[in-house]
């Protein structure tokens, strides 16, 4: 079995050992969504108007919460150090780890958006656009928050610093996604913006693993 396959199987086994971890971020998203009508007003027209944006923000927050400690357990039990000895570039292994994380931890978050959409009475067309936007945008978000997690690995007092440091870089993704949602609401063509969003994700997925591997190296090697 190739190393990549074994890494994926290992991630699956880790999740099977603690299945509760998958549900916490979904649980968090639904709780945030339930707070919106309580804080605003149970007016379904108003909710439908801001609903898709609220779901976007809630999913973004859940993703950040989810990815904050992406490399922490692998770092403390020495798995990351073993990666350095494999006959693969570190950036490649980081890529595999990020893909596994996206598949097993981020995708479930996207899958519950229809439920969240029903709760905020978002229309079917907008909900579909929201779903596709999240599918296209989350790879970039996962990469960047993974970088935040890797940068703060070696520091014991970083807290949520990794999230704070990376959030400004989410701006283009959030703006483009909002553009898609606005266009979906008034029924115009969303494809160009989705293509831009996809391009951003592809570039992030290609370049960010290199930065992540540099961050991991500096945290493992100490001052080297």
């Amino acid at each position: 079995m190739s190393i990549e396959k074994r890494m994926l199987v290992r991630e699956l086994k880790l999740i099977a050992a603690r299945p509760g971890d998958i549900f916490k971020p979904m649980w968090f998203t639904l709780l945030v969504i339930s707070m919106v009508p309580l804080a605003l007003a149970p007016d379904s027209q108003l909710l439908a108007e801001i609903g898709s944006a609220m779901i976007w923000v809630a999913t973004l927050l859940a993703l950040l919460l989810n990815t904050e400690h992406l490399f922490q357990s692998d770092f403390s039990d020495g798995v990351l150090e073993q990666w350095l000895f494999l006959d693969r570039p570190l950036a490649w292994l980081v890529g595999v780890k990020l893909i596994a994380h996206w598949l097993f931890n981020v995708l479930p978050l996207i899958l519950i958006t229809p439920v969240a959409g029903l709760m905020l009475s978002v229309s079917t067309e907008v909900l579909l656009a929201l779903f596709i936007t999240l599918l296209v945008a989350t790879p970039a978000l996962t990469c960047f928050s993974g970088l935040g997690a890797a940068l703060t690995l070696g520091s014991s007092r970083s807290g949520i610093l990794g999230v704070l440091v990376m959030m400004p870089l989410f701006v283009p993704v959030v703006i483009l996604a909002a553009g898609v949602l606005i266009r979906a609401t008034d029924g115009s063509d969303t494809l160009p913006l989705l293509a831009l969003l996809g391009a951003f994700s592809v570039i992030a997925a290609t370049l960010v693993p290199v930065a992540v591997s540099a961050a991991i190296r500096l945290n493992i090697g100490g001052s080297n």
């Binding site: 970088l147 940068l151 703060t152 070696g154 520091s155 007092r157 540099a214 961050a215 500096l218 945290n219």
Partner: peptide, 16 residues
């Protein structure tokens, strides 16, 4: 500010 070792902190900041 999160790192104690200035070299490590410098490199992390550089990447960022």
């Amino acid at each position: 500010a999160a790192f104690q070792d200035p070299d490590q902190a410098g490199k992390a900041c550089g990447i960022l």
